[in-house]
Design a protein around this nucleic acid. Structure first.
Lengths: 164, 164
DNA sequence: CTAAATTGGTACGTGCCACGAACCAATTCA
DNA sequence: TGAATTGGTTCGTGGCACGTACCAATTTAG
């Protein structure tokens, strides 16, 4: 609502909701595009990112990505088939399976992340450092708010990667 | 890169790339969740949003959504099967097909959009009006930059809706 | 200590989404 | 008029996500 009637250009007079939706799609599509150049989907990229510094079980992976365990099975299947990750039996629990990246997986993930950082850098190049800082603050505030609101949101991974 | 070593909380010390990625996922997931409550996917929601004030052909729809024509066929098929849109023959070009929403489609889209606006409102409630204005400005700047950069990006639809 | 729950994973089957290729019908161009 | 071009549909393929059913290992309870 409150859609201003005066609209000269395509992005003129965007309200907060529109602006955030557009920005979100832009970033999302950018990542999809960059990952796609390496035949990776966004989920696959996030998977590899998470595995950068961990070897979680399928179960933990599910929580980390906010996906059902059956989804994880397929996801890891496809990644394993491509030689990007490996399954290893757990020593503690003989039911459990740990997932780890291969060198190839790490390399791919790193390439995507580098390209993504570069692209985001281009998109924000017009903002002064102080404005970039403010943008970070706003985003952080919104993320924090979403966490406290319900808490049941899937774990979001900074830069598609780790999280304490 | 430049990942700060000092990290106390989950979102502490996010850099610009991480912050934007997280924010993007947050908004995206929020929309997916809200749309999902009405059995709608994000694409379906965008489709209905676009049709709010237009009756484009399949072809135009493809450009608007940045999808292949074959993808549009299936998309419209499923929506039509659910009674959310209708196909009508074009008067000018007997090959072409125009797509329009039904009342049910409009109602659904409106509900999702209302819920989405409300949720974004909650997430940004902590920001002062001046900060919200700045956030809009930053987002708008990034979007503008992405357009000028290559120009071949798929058409982004403000609030999943119209666009001049 | 064994029987009953619970937990960790996998294997379907289903459906959406996206693509490319093949194809048909209508339109436009030469 | 004949040859491209354009608008759409129909496959076939593959990723993604879910729920259900199922199996094996582990934990809990009696």
């Amino acid at each position: 609502m409150n859609r201003p009637d005066i609209e000269s250009g395509p992005d003129a007079g965007l309200d907060l909701v529109d602006a955030l939706a557009l920005l979100s799609f832009l970033v999302h599509d950018t990542l999809a595009e960059l990952a796609g150049r390496h035949e990776l989907s966004i989920v696959q990229t996030r998977l590899l990112g998470i595995l950068r510094d961990r070897e979680p079980t399928m179960n933990e992976l599910g929580r980390l990505l906010g996906l059902d365990k059956s989804s994880i099975s397929g996801l890891v299947d496809r990644a394993e088939r491509r030689g990007l990750v490996t399954r290893t039996a757990s020593a503690q629990d003989r039911r459990a399976v740990h997932v780890a990246t291969t060198a190839a997986g790490r390399r791919l993930a790193a390439e995507v992340e580098t390209a993504f950082s570069a692209r985001i850098g281009e998109l924000t190049a017009g903002l002064a450092p102080s404005d970039q800082a403010r943008l970070i603050a706003y985003a952080t505030a919104m993320i924090a708010r979403s966490r406290s609101d319900q808490g049941d949101h899937p774990n979001l991974e900074p830069r598609l990667r780790a999280k304490t």
